[in-house]
Every structure is written in C-alpha cells, then in structure tokens.
Design a protein around this nucleic acid. Structure first.
Lengths: 136, 136
DNA sequence: TTAATACCTATAGTTAACTCGAGGTCAAGC
DNA sequence: GCTTGACCTCGAGTTAACTATAGGTATTAA
C-alpha cells in the first residue's frame, strides 16, 4: 500500500510539517503508523481523515474538541450518538456563521457604495445631509 | 447631548469593559472624549463607530489593520481611496469566507447523513461496502 | 566516505486578543 | 465623614495555535 511522508502530506493539505507534528502531539493523528526508526508513514485514509480534521477546524472547532471526536472514532459504535450530535451541532454552527457573515456583508456593501459616492464627488461632505455620523 | 458610560456601551455591544479599554489602548477609539478626571464619555456616534469596528472584526480583520482605517478616517478626504479599497477587499474576503463555509457545509451534511444511517443500523459496519475509509 | 537532506523529539518562543489584579480617584448615599 | 461602587492606568497573566531551534538519526548522492 502506498504511503506518504510528512512533507508530502503537508504539501497536499497546504499545511506545514510543524503543524502536522503539532496536531500529532495534540492527539489528532493516533492512527498514523511509523517505521522502526520513528518516521511517520501516512496512508491514503490518513490523508482523508486529516481532511475531515481540516473541515472541522474550518468550522472554528478548537483542537481539543476535535481530539474528542478522534477519540470517539477509536471507541467504535458506542460513540455513534455523540458523533452524530457533534456533526448536527457543527451544522448549526456553520449555518449561524454564514448568517452572521451575510449580515456583515450588508454593512460592508453599504460602506462600499458610500465611499464610491464620496470618491466620485472628491469629498465625504457629499454625505453631509445624511444623519450625522463620524465614521462611515 | 446624551452620553454613555463604558459599562453601558459594553452591555449594548456585548463586550466587556476590559475589551473596550483594550480597543482604546490599541488606538481604535481616539474619538471618545473624557471628563476632566479621565472618565470616558461615549456619544451615540461613538457607538455607531464601534459597530463598524465590530463589523470589520467579524470579517476576520486584525485590530492593527482596523486601526489603520481609524487613522485614515481622521485624515479626511485624502484617504478616501484607501478606505474604499479596504471595503472592496473586505467584501471579497467575506465572499470567500462564505464560499468556504458552504463547501465545509457539504462535508458536514454528508457526515450527518452518514451517522444517521449508522445510528439507525446500530453500527458503522453498515457503511462497510463504501470505499474503505477509517474516519467518517 | 563524507556531505546534504529529510526525518525525529523536546522545548522554547511568538502572536493576537483578550483578561485580570493592584492601586488609585471621585461622586453619591447614609 | 465614611463606605460603596464605577471609573481610571499600568502591567502582568492567559490561551490557542502555531512556529522555530537545538540536537540527534537515517538514507541517499557524489
């Protein structure tokens, strides 16, 4: 079975080898095997697992909680409920984050048009008839 | 003109007074006036400005960059272009973040249904005919 | 055979964004 | 007059997630 070195995996996942070793130290990669002298050998399935870890990280989940999930995976079927609940919770969290970003986007777009108008006029004074605001 | 104390503003914006003082120390609130003995007096417009700061923060912008923007605001019309460009850049960044979260959401939803099926079956083995994966 | 290169561990340092404690001022209420 | 509570500054401490360094081993290339 084909295996990959830590630097190959780092390149593939756009991480540094430092980061991967850090994740390992934090217990996120207990499944990665080693050679007799200690060098990590990543399997294809390990890379897939790391992609799931990256996915969880991109939802803003802290590493310690991701470790809980990894531990549950090793515990087998008795933790199916926890894992299901975790993903439902992640789903709700991501939905909330998207909603928040969309709300943020409204203000940003308002600022874009505000500054477009000011720039075309050459001065912010063009907005003086708006309710007074110091910072737009 | 009505003014607000730091704790009133903290409550309104869901921040702590520590955080507000920290922002001030970092130069995000040069416009907030003080009483003779040093107590901050927040105007309505200061609160509006802080909402813009919170908006920028929620786009992931670091405090030091937000400070640049605040400085530009104090510099007047000569910085209109920078401020416009900054908001265009924020807009692009937020769009990218939403797109990223939507991609994340796909995997999360896949995991939700994966675990729903496993949970109903009572075992993860129900997915054994899928391509072999260690971590789902 | 030696020199470069990729790997390893352990440990220390960095950065951002808070968070808190000590020590002090000041206005209001008893 | 004295206590309480909100405010202040300054500086130290915290936390997460890296990031880097030192010192060492093993494989490969000339």
């Amino acid at each position: 079975m084909k295996t990959y070195s830590i630097s190959e995996v780092a390149k593939e996942l756009n991480l540094t080898v430092y980061t991967l070793r850090y994740y390992d130290k934090e217990g996120l990669m207990p499944f990665v095997e080693r050679t007799a002298n200690g060098t990590r050998l990543f399997k294809e399935s390990d890379i897939e697992a790391l992609k799931v870890i990256e996915c969880l990280k991109s939802t803003g989940m802290p590493i310690k909680e991701i470790k809980n999930f990894i531990d549950w995976c090793a515990d087998g079927d008795s933790t199916l409920q926890q894992r299901y609940d975790m993903f439902l919770e992640r789903k709700a969290s991501v939905e909330a984050q998207i909603a928040e970003l969309q709300k943020t986007m409204e203000l940003i777009e308002h600022k874009c048009s505000y500054y477009k108008i000011a720039l075309d006029a050459g001065t912010e004074d063009v907005h003086k008839q708006d309710k007074i605001e110091i910072l737009h």
